[in-house]
Structure formats: C-alpha cells, structure tokens
C-alpha cells in the first residue's frame, strides 16, 4: 500500500471504525457502571457550605496539605502531562478543523509554536511519569500490563503528532498516517482500559464528595 492510500484509509474507514468503537464502548461502559445504582442514604444529612459532590469535583484537583512534600513529582508531572495533552489535543488548529468537520463545532486555536512547546512538555512529563513508575516501589508494585499499555497508547499519538508537525524522521504523509493510526488505537482502547478514568473521574469525585458532604466534611 502506498503512503497516500494508507493516509486515505486511516482518515476514512480507519477513523470511522475507531470513532464507532469509541462511542459505542463509552456508552456501553457508562451504562455498565452507573446502572448499578446506589442505595439512598437514610441518615439525616448536614448542610455545611463547601461540602458537596460538586465542590469535590474541582477541589480534588488540589493536593491536601503535606502531600506535595510527600509526592510532589506525581502531582507536578501529572498536572504537566494532563494539561499538555489538553492543549495539544484541543488547541492545535488542524485538530480543531477536524472536530469542526465532524461536528460543526469550533473554537480558536493556539499558535503552533505554543502547541509545539506543549507537546514537548507533555512528552517530557510522560517520560518522567514512566521513569517514576519504574523507580518508585509503590507504583511499580501496583503496575499491571494495563498501566504500561495505557502509557504507550497515550505517548504514541503525542510523539507521532509532534514528529509529523515538525516534519521529522519519516516522510510527512507516512508520519501523519501513523499519527492518525495511533490516535485510532487510543480511541479503541480508551473505554476498556484505565484510560476510561477520563470519564469516570468526575462521577467518582462527585460520589466521594457527596458521601462526605452529607456528614458535613468538605473533602
């Protein structure tokens, strides 16, 4: 298959299949998880300002006192790569154009130099996170095949995207095709791996904040 045909496939059929699996998988997993429901809490609740599920949605992004000292690297590298990913995925002009083609929705992009920088920061932070996972006994102990795979399928789209945008290593068309293919891999795996936390993190924080909020504790 020549490069142009490959690009056509990943842009066409490949993308359609990936998006289909991603959407179906996401809906399936959300139903599978949240249809389990929960029992109503019959204890009389307290009403304390700041103590609720909604508050915990954002408050949980801030480490509690002492945790930065104990595990600063986890927070800083974690923040860096999540924010970097958000910038690269949602503020790069070609990505916004693609989203506009698919959904009709668009928003202003960041200049490509900034996106380049964000990509470099993301890649560096992800390498730090990986090194930390290998080096730190608790993280190594907890790690499963799924953790290494989730790291790889997140890293590859950023790496190939950066290389394609900078016209490095491989001919542009081929690198772009590999980039799109790696994104498709990410989309297909997301609902079925720990990457699904992108969705469940919000209800999880809400549940925790709600349970503790009923007791009057802002968590």
């Amino acid at each position: 298959m020549d490069a142009a045909l490959f690009l056509n496939w990943v842009r066409g059929t490949g993308l359609q299949v990936a998006i289909f699996i991603f959407l179906l998988g996401t809906v399936w997993r959300l139903v599978e998880i949240y249809s389990l429901g929960r029992k109503p809490d019959l204890a009389e609740r307290r009403h304390v300002p700041g103590a609720s599920g909604w508050h915990t949605l954002w408050r949980r992004s801030i480490p509690i006192p002492g945790m930065m000292q104990r595990s600063g690297l986890t927070y800083i590298a974690g923040y860096a790569f999540h924010l970097g990913l958000a910038v690269v995925v949602f503020l790069f002009a070609p990505h916004i154009r693609l989203i506009q083609e698919l959904t009709g929705i668009s928003w202003p992009a960041l200049p490509s130099q900034f996106v380049d920088l964000a990509a470099v920061v993301t890649l560096a932070a992800m390498l730090v996170v990986l090194a930390d996972r290998i080096r730190q006994p608790v993280k190594r102990f907890l790690s499963t095949f799924g953790d290494w795979m989730a790291w790889l399928v997140t890293f590859l789209p950023v790496l190939t995207g950066y290389l394609a945008a900078r016209h490095l290593l491989l001919p542009y068309t081929l690198m772009l095709s590999l980039h799109i293919l790696s994104v498709e891999l990410l989309l297909v795996l997301l609902p079925f791996t720990k990457l699904f936390h992108a969705f469940t993190v919000w209800p999880s924080r809400w549940f925790n904040g709600d349970v503790q909020g009923k007791k009057g504790v802002a968590v």
Binding site: R29, L36, K139, K194
Partner: peptide, 17 residues
Amino acid sequence: IDAPIASYFNSCVHCGL
C-alpha cells in the same frame, strides 16, 4: 458492589498516592 464502587475501580490509575 454499587455504582460508586464500579466508578472508583474504573477511575484508579495506580498512581500510588
């Protein structure tokens, strides 16, 4: 096992914090 528990297990990223 209820929805919160299912949500929690799906959210864990093995960060070790």
